[in-house]
Design a protein around this nucleic acid. Structure first.
Length: 259
DNA sequence: GGAGGTGGGAAATATC
DNA sequence: AGATATTTCCCACCTC
């Protein structure tokens, strides 16, 4: 890969990040306007997707809006660019053993500096405290166990997915589709990273891949814990599963805060 | 036509 | 030993 291609890749990542950021933020605002999760529509009918616009047009609109949102563009935007470029740069974050979670510190710093204190991966919106140590590993290390997995039972994939979704540092890998309860989407670029982390967490001998992980996610359709949304890379927690996870996470968060 | 995502059957494996 | 929850492999189909 030559330098120009590397820059191009960096720019693509940045563009994807900004688009996702804008989508999430605009949905979050819409959500706060309605302030009622129970009446929210599903991802199918509220997703302001790029499919509905010609790609170029969408990007331009998004970038224009994003530019105006990021005024002044300097510190936050530059840090976003820097972090993403670093994350993307020649797979360094992957090859060096530096994973998305290691990146979480950088990204959290970015989030702290983001306009309006915007939070990318927090279903609970702005009331969720953002800490620099929210990676699952760090949290698991420092907290009394509260999830079934952590109580001694086996860690289950949907718990892990929820952890990832609640971790702002993982927002560029997997994130909530904000205006839809329990709907989440993998990043096309970083989906494999989530799978890798899942494999590492389970201590699998073979490396986990997105394909294998998605097979496991599809298995949840039988038990109804997670269903596949008819949209690329998109899944949805059942309401029951979501409320259980949220209440468990609430306890954990309280424990985190009291430390 | 190829790549990537999806859907699902089936057997293997790990853990409780 | 049996149940459960993946994991792994594989194949077919679909969409872009």
């Amino acid at each position: 890969m030559n330098r120009q291609q590397e820059y191009q890749t960096d720019l693509e990542v940045i563009l994807e990040f900004l688009e996702e950021h804008y989508r999430q933020e605009s949905r979050r605002k819409a959500l706060w306007n309605t302030s009622d999760l129970s009446v929210m529509s599903t991802s199918e009918d509220v997703d302001i997707s790029r499919e509905k616009l010609p790609a170029g047009e969408h990007s331009n609109i998004v970038l224009e809006k994003e530019k105006s949102q990021l005024q002044p563009p300097a510190p936050a935007a530059q840090q976003v660019m820097g972090s993403l470029a670093k994350a993307n740069g020649s797979d360094s974050y992957k090859d060096s053993g530096m994973n998305c979670n290691s990146n979480a510190v950088d990204q959290s710093a970015v989030l702290h500096n983001a306009p309006d204190g915007q939070v990318l991966n927090a279903l609970n919106g702005p009331e969720r405290p953002l800490t620099l140590n929210t990676t699952p590993e760090k949290c698991a290390e420092s907290l009394p166990s509260i999830t079934p997995a952590e109580k001694g039972k086996k860690l289950r994939l949907f718990h892990f997915m929820f952890e990832m979704l609640e971790d702002p540092g993982m927002a560029h890998c997997v994130s909530w589709v904000p205006a839809s309860a329990g709907v989440f989407r993998f990043s096309a670029r970083h989906k494999e990273r989530v799978a890798e982390l899942w494999g590492q967490r389970k201590g699998n001998r073979m490396p986990m891949t997105y394909q294998k992980m998605s097979r496991a996610l599809r298995n949840y359709a039988r038990s109804g814990e997670i269903i596949k949304v008819k949209k690329k890379l998109t899944y949805q927690f059942s309401l029951a599963t979501l409320s259980t996870l949220q209440s468990q996470h609430g306890v954990k968060k309280a424990a985190c805060g009291s430390k």
